[in-house]
Write a protein that binds this DNA or RNA. Structure first.
Lengths: 88, 88
DNA sequence: GTGCATTTGTACGTATGTATA
DNA sequence: ATATACATACGTACAAATGCA
């Protein structure tokens, strides 16, 4: 991990999910509202793909991102409003 | 897998989820409403723990089972009614 | 209450398949 | 067709929570 944990007790995938959620809300990746690829995120955050996907999955179940095989993962800005970071 | 797939195209974890959901609704494991351990289910269905947990996770997100670290996974019969098998 | 066994959770590794552009 | 990107599925090891003797 290349960023400090909010709480030392949180598992890595939740910390990752928090960090990603924050960046999504900040609009850091709103080029075409797409996130970097899983491989790119893995290097950025120095996490395994397994853990990264675990994080993305929680974001998806929260309606924060949209994933579809073959296409980049997109931030779901239609689900904003009450979904305020942090959530974990 | 020790049972026939409903559709040959379905991924293994979904087929597993279907099979587990059916057994839950049938009450096959309603001893104390607990499911066998992951290890037991892995041997029964000849699936890896990874895949089995993937299946259980989908069931959990559907409200069909309750999982808690340290305790056996329980079928959630409070969530029955409209949740009719099959769902995948 | 301590310790052990059981059970689920987390995390990483690797390979291959499938959908999309 | 090739390349890119996400999905599936096998494996390993250790951590953490629970329950019981």
């Amino acid at each position: 991990m290349v960023f400090p944990k909010l709480k030392e007790s949180l598992p890595l995938y939740k910390t990752l999910a928090n960090a990603l959620a924050q960046r999504i809300h900040n609009g850091d990746w709103a080029v075409g509202s797409n996130l970097p690829s899983e491989a790119a995120l893995c290097s950025s955050f120095e996490a395994s793909r397994h853990t990264l996907r675990h994080a993305l999955q929680t974001l998806e179940s929260d309606g924060l991102v949209l994933r579809r095989q073959g296409t980049p993962t997109a931030g779901d800005f239609s689900a904003e409003g009450e979904k305020i970071y942090p959530k974990f």
